[in-house]
Write a protein that binds this DNA or RNA. Structure first.
Length: 110
DNA sequence: GGTGTGACCAGCT
DNA sequence: AAGCTGGCCACAC
């Protein structure tokens, strides 16, 4: 049943991210069992725009809580605005209290 | 169809 | 302590 590749799994996990929460690439990759594929997660975000799915890529940042991929949203302020819109504070392209908003990948979908 | 690339992470020097 | 390299896997040319 889990024929979905690591790439597809990434999308599923990201869509599981609740409102006002964020997670890191490594957390997702590690959760899937491939910590080394952290960059694949980020890259999946890039494809998320062209993908037919709605992926809240703005809720995904690096382990430092830094908005590294903000450039890929078409504008380097979209990602920050989206996060702030959810109640997340951002300073210097970094999430304030990142751990407080950090959400652990839990695909408890059943 | 092979090679390169990519929004990362962690270990080694 | 800081800088560089490897690793992972799917997509584009």
């Amino acid at each position: 049943m889990e024929e979905q590749t690591f790439f597809k799994k990434v999308y599923k996990v990201i869509r599981q991210i609740p409102y006002g929460k964020v997670t890191s690439y490594g957390a997702i990759a590690s959760y899937l069992g491939t910590k080394g594929s952290a960059r694949m997660v980020g890259w999946a975000m890039n494809k998320s725009f062209t993908s037919s799915e709605n992926i809240p890529a703005h809720r995904v940042v690096n382990r430092n809580g830094m908005l590294t991929g903000k450039h890929h949203f078409g504008s380097p302020n979209i990602m920050q605005q989206l996060l702030e819109s959810e109640g997340i504070k951002i300073v210097d392209d970094k999430i304030v209290d990142f751990q407080k908003f950090f959400w652990e990948p839990t695909t408890k979908n059943g």
